[in-house]
């Protein structure tokens, strides 16, 4: 996949969770230009065009980020995105199971654009994923490049 065309970057370590999210987005045709990464460090490499992604300059329109990730956790990924002049305007939506106040607080302090707690009920989850795709990809006006 040509990373330049990536519109949604999904960072999620659980392949089944990822599959369900992708399925939810696909139903509404948001998954055509979706790229899935299952590791925090790889996600950073992808976003900043380093390591194995050195050849690709990728600027997704939306990043869906889980908090619990191998190697580098979601909060650290969020911090690096929001501290970098080039990437801080990319909308980041944290999509997680954690309702813990400490996580919510940390994410908002770092400037997260949305914090979604994944419902256990798949119907609600699918609805939430579809709605956030709708909102960020269609309704929201992206920052000028």
């Amino acid at each position: 996949m040509e990373s330049r065309s990536v519109e949604i970057l999904l960072v999620e370590d659980n392949p089944y969770e990822a599959e369900l999210a992708i399925r939810g987005l696909k139903k509404h045709n948001f998954a055509n230009n979706l790229y899935h990464i299952d590791d925090g460090a790889d996600a950073l490499d992808f976003i900043f065009g380093r390591g194995k992604y050195a050849d690709h300059a990728a600027t997704p329109k939306l990043i869906l980020l889980d908090i619990k990730l191998p190697r580098v956790d979601g909060i650290e990924v969020l911090r690096q995105i929001k501290m970098n002049e080039k990437t801080k305007s990319i909308p980041v939506v944290v999509l997680t199971s954690s309702k813990e106040n400490q996580d919510v607080k940390a994410c908002y302090e770092l400037g997260v654009n949305s914090y979604i707690v994944k419902p256990v009920d798949f119907d609600s989850f699918a609805k939430a994923v579809a709605e956030l795709g709708m909102y960020w990809m269609l309704l929201n006006t992206a920052p000028p490049r």
């Binding site: 659980n14 089944y16 969770e17 369900l20 399925r23 908090i67 619990k68 997680t96 199971s97 954690s98 309702k99 813990e100 994944k118 419902p119 256990v120 009920d121 798949f122 989850f125 699918a126």
Partner: peptide, 15 residues
């Protein structure tokens, strides 16, 4: 909160 909910969502989702 985090780890028990994910498998449940997956069970429900795939069902």
């Amino acid at each position: 909160s985090h780890d028990l909910r994910a498998p449940l969502r997956i069970i429900d989702g795939f069902a």
